[in-house]
Every structure is written in structure tokens, then in C-alpha cells.
């Protein structure tokens, strides 16, 4: 399943979904998070050390994380600020710790946390506005590699077609 998480003010997730339809992509799910109440990760670490696998913040995030934990790909659709994704999109990313464990191993020459579930989705970014494309690609690569998955790349809004072709 390809999971699209829209955090943009203009809700450009629907444009992405339309493009997916035109390309007959199956099993795409769009979640519009813009009206949801999703707070920032407060770094309590309880999801690792107190209630393993469970976030103590009870807001609208948990159903999204459940979807993330079983998706093949997650695409973050974000406005940009400081050339980077918005804080709203970053909060969604920061809150994924419950699907990661505190345990570590070296895997392919890189220290990584052992993932809690058997699979981890690939990551992609679609951004609207003045993003630093090179940096966003670098960041997405690094994050996916931390999770032991692959990056599908970061694409500006004008490249939605290209992004969809990589799904």
C-alpha cells in the first residue's frame, strides 16, 4: 500500500491522488492531516522504555502510525519553510519512534536501531514552495537509510508526475 500523508495548506494531496488514478496505481491511500490534531514529539522516550511500541500522547496520530507501520511506501506531502519541510510534516516524522526499538545493531556498516515490525516503508517527499531540493533529497535518503529502507526521492509540486512514476 502507498500511503500519502498530506500536511499542506492547499491540500495538494488530491492532485497527487488524481495523478495516481491516471496511472492506475492500485492501493493508494490519502490521509488529509490538515484538520487533525497532531502534536510534536515531546521526547519522553516512553515508546521505547516504558510502554514499548506505544505513544503516550493521545491525539489523532496513532491511526496514522498504524498505517505507516504496514505501508510499503509513505509519501510526505508538505509545505516548505526554511527550504525544508514544515513543522507540521516534521512532527509526523518525529513521532514514528514507536515503530522503532531502542535496541541497536550494525547493519551494512551503519549503526541502526532495530525496527519493531518486520517491514519498514520506503519514504518519499512531495513539497510545495521554495524547497531546497538537494537538501530535501539528502535528508530523505538519510532518514530512509536510518530505518533500513530506501528513499524514493523528494519532488517539487511541479514534478508530481515524476514522483508518481516512482511509486
Amino acid at each position: 500500500m502507498v500511503l500519502l500523508l498530506d500536511t499542506t495548506e492547499e491540500k495538494i494531496g488530491s492532485e497527487v491522488l488524481r495523478e495516481c488514478g491516471l496511472n492506475k496505481k492500485e492501493e493508494v491511500e490519502l490521509i488529509d492531516t490538515t484538520e487533525m490534531n497532531i502534536s510534536n514529539c515531546n521526547g519522553c522516550n516512553f515508546c521505547w522504555l516504558k510502554t514499548p511500541g506505544e505513544c503516550t500522547l493521545k491525539d489523532d496520530y496513532e491511526p496514522i502510525l498504524k498505517k505507516i507501520s504496514s505501508a510499503d511506501q509513505v509519501w510526505l506531502i508538505s509545505d516548505t519553510k526554511f527550504g525544508f519541510i514544515s513543522y507540521k510534516a516534521k512532527n509526523i516524522v518525529d513521532r514514528i519512534s514507536p515503530i522503532i526499538t531502542t535496541f541497536l545493531h550494525y547493519n551494512n556498516k551503519k549503526a541502526r536501531h532495530i525496527m519493531r515490525y518486520d517491514r519498514t516503508p520506503d519514504l518519499g517527499v512531495i513539497y510545495s514552495g521554495e524547497g531546497n531540493d538537494e537538501f530535501l533529497n539528502r535528508w530523505c535518503d538519510r532518514l530512509a537509510s536510518d530505518l533500513g529502507s530506501s528513499s524514493r526521492g523528494a519532488y517539487g509540486r511541479e514534478k508530481i508526475k515524476e514522483a508518481v512514476s516512482c511509486m
Binding site: T51, S70, F103, R116, Y117
Partner: peptide, 23 residues
Amino acid sequence: TMIKMAEAAFGCTTPLDYKPWAQ
């Protein structure tokens, strides 16, 4: 150490790699 710390600091006796959402 992590397992010990989790129990000492947070009273956690659940395995730290527990899967609450076994699918």
C-alpha cells in the same frame, strides 16, 4: 543495560521489542 534501565527508571517489565500491533 537498556532493559535494566527501563525497569529501574520506568518500571517497565514489557519486552522492549514488544509488538503491540501484531498484524
